[in-house]
């Protein structure tokens, strides 16, 4: 079996596909640097990420399947699920093997899996569009922390850029330790250094705008009073707002205390 190790980027993954097709290896196992478990019998190949090769693979796929189907593959990749690369590889093999696009052949296990994982990732994307809670800091930055199950910041970027075009904002993924920052012109990927001890004795608590506490209180009031007690339904509530999201939701947690 050919074991391929790549750098866990999308370009790296597509480069891997290129290498596999060029070397005509089968069967294969694609894994990332972080996930690879050394194996006595396997001779792993470390793939060099190559923009040109990645571009060629993507163009080849895009020629055979529809644009939404290509986006599905990218969404699946962002799921970061163990082994999803192998599913994607099987799907891509199918794309090049068949005359017409297999994107709707839901009876095929890999096609169905891609469609299901895409749905999971998009559900998380949609949740993030809903659950981001900005807090206004004293220097007029709208800041929100998130911890999504999948790496969905690349998918929500345009939504927030379109919607909040007239305010500076930063959405930070605490789990993956990077964020997206909008400066009224473009969105950039940023990494923050929280609790940077080298700067001395200054506390690293962000200062909130003077109105922030009032609006958080008003939102909590609203959330509490729009509820109809006679219709209480905890099961449904938890199904829609699972507990793992609570710590970043204004209405569920006191965000100002940290």
């Amino acid at each position: 079996m050919g074991v391929f190790i790549y750098d866990s980027t999308w370009t790296g993954f597509l480069s891997t596909i290129f290498e596999i097709f060029e070397r005509r290896v089968r069967p294969v196992n694609i894994t990332t640097v972080g996930r690879y478990m050394p194996d006595v019998f396997a001779q792993p190949l470390h793939v060099t990420t190559d923009e040109v090769k990645a571009e060629r693979v993507l163009a080849g796929i895009a020629k055979k399947i529809s644009a939404p189907a290509v986006r599905k593959l990218y969404a699946c990749f962002l799921s970061e699920l163990p082994g999803i690369e192998n599913t994607l590889y099987a799907y891509i093999r199918l794309v090049f093997a068949m005359k017409e696009s297999p994107e709707r052949a839901y009876a095929d296990p890999d096609v169905l899996r891609v469609s299901q994982v895409d749905k999971m990732v998009h559900r998380e994307k949609h949740r993030m569009e809903a659950f981001v809670r900005f807090q206004l800091t004293s220097d007029d930055l709208y800041y929100a922390a998130v911890e999504p199950d999948y790496n969905v910041l690349p998918l929500i970027l345009n939504h927030f850029k379109r919607r909040y075009a007239d305010q500076r904002w930063l959405i930070y993924d605490l789990r993956r330790d990077y964020g997206i920052y909008y400066d009224l012109k473009t969105v950039e990927e940023v990494t923050l250094s929280f609790n940077d001890k080298s700067t001395g004795s200054e506390p690293s608590i962000p200062l909130f705008h003077e109105e922030e506490a009032l609006y958080q209180a008003l939102w909590k009031d609203y959330f509490k009073h729009v509820n109809i007690k006679e219709r209480k339904n905890d099961k449904l509530h938890l199904q829609h707002v699972p507990k793992r999201y609570w710590k970043n939701l204004t209405e569920k947690f006191n965000l100002l205390m940290w």
């Binding site: 919607r163 909040y164 075009a165 959330f223 219709r231 209480k232 905890d234 509530h237 939701l249």
Partner: peptide, 25 residues
């Protein structure tokens, strides 16, 4: 659509949270 760098847009709709009775907010 958001015009001239204004505030907001509308689309498919988003439920930003759910009350304890399970209704969308």
């Amino acid at each position: 659509k958001n015009k001239n760098k204004g505030l907001g847009d509308t689309g498919n709709g988003i439920c930003h949270t759910y009350t304890e009775d399970g209704r969308c907010v």
